[in-house]
Amino acid sequence: MKKIIIGSILTAGLFLAGSAQAKYIDKHTEANLVKICEAIQSDSKIKLHIAIRDSGINPKAVSKGLVCNGYDPVTFAIVSKAENTAKFMARMSNVNYEELLAKL
């Protein structure tokens, strides 16, 4: 019985340690993601394209997984009154820009 309890504790510890490591982002990647958010906010498609290219992250991954100030990229651009980058990010993530704008 002791072996089962100890085994369960060790297994739970490994799962908790693995989930803590999955949330780590190195400083370089974090800086690139911040640059992408700043480019979205700037309303310049050229700056946004350069920021995504320089980050080395797939544009589809950026459009689906990036969070800027708690918003997805399209919503963040709309809230920042960056219409050009909102439409650009909406096309990249296959989101209907007009429908999303109506909901806000």
Rank of each mutant, 00 (worst) to 15 (best):
H49P: 00
S63L: 03
I50L: 11
E38N: 15
L16P: 00
H49Q: 14
A31H: 05
I36C: 10
I40C: 12
C68A: 11
V79A: 14
Y71S: 11
D72A: 09
G70Y: 06
I57F: 05
A77L: 03
L10S: 08
N69H: 14
I78Y: 05
Q41S: 15
G65L: 12
I52C: 07
A22F: 08
H49W: 03
I25R: 12
T85K: 06
Y24I: 15
L10E: 02
G18A: 15
T75W: 03
A12P: 00
E30V: 02
E83F: 01
L33E: 12
T11Q: 00
K64Y: 06
A51C: 06
G13H: 01
L33I: 11
H28S: 11
K45E: 14
G65M: 08
A51G: 07
G18H: 05
K27P: 04
C68D: 12
I78L: 14
F76H: 13
A61F: 05
G13P: 00
G18Q: 07
V34P: 00
K45H: 03
K47S: 09
I57D: 06
K60A: 05
K35T: 08
I36H: 08
I57R: 05
D72E: 07
K47F: 05
C68E: 12
S44N: 13
K47D: 14
I36A: 09
G65D: 09
P73T: 03
Q21I: 15
K27D: 15
P73M: 03
T75Q: 10
N32D: 14
G56D: 10
K35A: 15
K60T: 08
Y71D: 11
D26N: 15
D26K: 13
A61C: 01
G65H: 09
G13M: 03
A61Q: 09
T75V: 05
K23D: 01
A22P: 06
L10K: 00
H28M: 05
T11A: 15
L10H: 00
E30L: 13
K47L: 12
S55R: 09
D72F: 06
A82P: 04
I50M: 10
S80K: 14
A61P: 02
I57L: 13
V74C: 09
N32G: 02
N32W: 02
T29Q: 13
L10P: 00
I46P: 00
R53P: 00
V79Q: 15
G70M: 08
A77K: 00
N32V: 02
I52S: 10
E38D: 13
Y71V: 01
V34G: 00
V34D: 10
L33F: 06
I57V: 12
K45Y: 03
L33D: 04
K47W: 05
P73K: 02
A77I: 01
S44A: 04
A82V: 02
T11S: 10
I52Y: 05
N58I: 02
P59H: 01
E30K: 09
S63C: 11
A82W: 03
N58S: 11
K64G: 04
K81V: 02
I25M: 13
K45L: 04
D54S: 11
T85C: 04
T29Y: 09
C68M: 10
N84E: 13
A82S: 15
L16D: 01
Y24P: 01
